[in-house]
């Protein structure tokens, strides 16, 4: 399976992971040696509530094929409600990026607890496959090339 993947184009996903849940889950996936697609580039934040929509746009504008946000399950936020703030921003952003002609599957929010290394693996693989179906992002090109 991996031979096949390495020959193909591999998407680049900028992943913002909450320190307390998804980042820990990705450590757990590592410790458990769960293999998954090498597409994510993780940026650790203390809470998904820290994720500024600007970060997501910047990632798309600079060439990310996808952006993955990993936060704590509803009710489980380490800081009580940061994940809800994240969810509300995400829901609004999804509407915005759809209007901007961006496939909404390029932006994904998942609740992955510290124990869910397996879920992390599945989410990354799934998203990677989806992005492979959609193909490389042209956002960077569009942003950088003024068409006359």
């Amino acid at each position: 399976m991996t031979n096949m993947n390495t020959e193909q184009w591999s998407p680049k996903i900028v992943a913002f992971f909450c320190n307390w849940c998804t980042y820990t889950a990705s450590d757990l996936a590592g410790v458990s040696r769960l293999r998954y697609a090498p597409s994510t580039r993780v940026i650790r934040v203390m809470c998904s509530g820290r994720i500024d929509p600007e970060f997501i746009m910047e990632a798309f504008a600079k060439g990310a094929d996808g952006v993955l946000i990993g936060g704590c399950h509803p009710g489980d936020c380490h800081y009580s409600e940061g994940n809800y703030k994240c969810l509300r921003r995400y829901d609004l952003l999804q509407r915005y990026i759809e209007q901007m002609g961006i496939d909404t599957r390029r932006l994904r929010l998942e609740w992955i607890s510290a124990a869910e290394g397996k879920k992390l693996q599945e989410v990354v693989n799934e998203m990677t496959n989806t992005l492979k179906e959609i193909g490389p992002s042209k956002i960077k090109h569009v942003v950088e090339t003024i068409e006359k």
């Binding site: 590592g30 040696r33 090498p38």
Partner: peptide, 14 residues
């Protein structure tokens, strides 16, 4: 390590 060498098989991609 946790985010790359332990979870990826392809040496080039890791």
């Amino acid at each position: 390590r946790e985010n790359a060498s332990w979870v990826h098989e392809s040496k080039e991609e890791a």
